[in-house]
């Protein structure tokens, strides 16, 4: 058990190191990329560029720059932005995190419930019109660019049908804090939740249906039915339990990545200042300290959710427990 934990920690450190090094290299060592020139702006005088290069420490060796930045990010935690000088990056990320968490957690509830509902219903009504219609809807969900779907939701709920009873409750775009205005928080997030979840309901519903159909051909299902178990029990206790294993893996990966900032497009379309948007803005202004902070935060979530998935595995799959 202890070795497993140590191994996991080592892996986490390795992946986070790898990602920070990758980001660092993308921004500092790409051929033709010059951060000083970028910060100085277009048509800056050569002296200005040189001054900036010295000022920000870009003239020092790359490993030294990397080391200093990592130390200020993790140990002294006083890393400041390149663009808004004096602005500390860690509090910025911490302020954006609840917004992204609100968005992703709500959507996750929707897509897990929706995905299981779609998958189970389609598997039960296999090869009927209901199954085909559900799978077509799921495929449409998978095929829509999320930002476009968000735009269309905005068009309908903020403009075209905003004055009808259907959408008159929808508040303007933006985020309201859960603690000060819980009802407002819920109302502003319902449509973003639905938008973000649509894609995942499609993916999860399809995967679950395929797994269930496969599971129903297994010997243990035949045994369960031969024993005279009710169809509902066969589905829930036997087929669904096996089929949820890949579901859990996918959920861990998707949830981690989304909390880490991959919900960026949804955040941009709905004007939510979450981690994704923060990362995107940092990337646009080449604010390397901010980029490193957000990316470290993102990879942390990815690695942590991966570890959680492995633990959940042991709980739901007895085969893993033995090995």
């Amino acid at each position: 058990m202890l070795t497993a934990i140590i191994q996991r920690l080592a892996q986490m450190v390795f992946v986070m190191f790898g990602i920070s090094a990758l980001v660092f290299l993308i921004f500092f060592a790409t051929p033709g990329a010059d951060p000083a020139a970028r910060i100085a702006g277009r048509n800056a005088a050569q002296e200005t560029v040189e001054a900036i290069r010295h000022d920000f420490g870009f003239d020092r060796p790359l490993p030294v720059q990397y080391g200093i930045m990592m130390k200020r990010l993790f140990i002294s935690r006083d890393l400041t932005s390149f663009v808004n000088r004096g602005l500390q990056v860690v509090p910025q990320v911490l302020a954006a995190a609840p917004i992204t968490l609100s968005l992703v957690c709500g959507a996750a509830v929707l897509w897990v419930v929706g995905g299981i509902a779609v998958g189970v219903l389609a598997a039960l009504t296999r090869d009927t019109i209901i199954d085909k219609a559900l799978m077509m809807l799921a495929l449409i969900g998978v095929s829509m660019p999320v930002f476009w779907f968000g735009e269309m939701m905005n068009l309908v709920s903020q403009s075209r049908f905003h004055d009808t009873w259907l959408f008159s409750w929808v508040p303007g775009l933006g985020y309201k804090s859960l603690w000060t205005d819980p009802w407002g928080w819920f109302k502003t997030l319902v449509i973003p939740w639905f938008t973000l979840a649509a894609l995942y309901i499609g993916i999860y519903g399809r995967v679950l249906r395929a797994n269930l159909v496969e599971a129903y051909q297994e010997d243990f299902i035949r045994t369960a039915r031969a024993k005279g178990l009710s169809p509902a029990r066969v589905m829930v206790r036997h087929a669904l339990r096996v089929s949820l294993i890949p579901f859990v893996t996918m959920f861990g990966l998707d949830f981690g990545v989304l909390v880490g900032g991959a919900a960026l497009l949804t955040e941009v379309v709905f004007g939510l200042n979450g981690v994704g948007r923060l990362t995107y803005q940092a990337l646009l202004s080449l604010d390397l300290p901010m980029i490193l902070a957000t990316v470290m935060y993102a990879s942390f979530f990815v690695v942590v959710t991966n570890a959680l998935v492995d633990m959940l595995y042991v709980l739901i799959d007895p085969r893993v427990r033995k090995s």
Partner: peptide
Amino acid sequence: DVLWAFPVYLLAISLSIVLISQGITI
């Protein structure tokens, strides 16, 4: 593994921002 743990969109955006503003010379 490292690429996998990196949210794809962030990777794509990072590369795009650096490369599209300046081009690349190999």
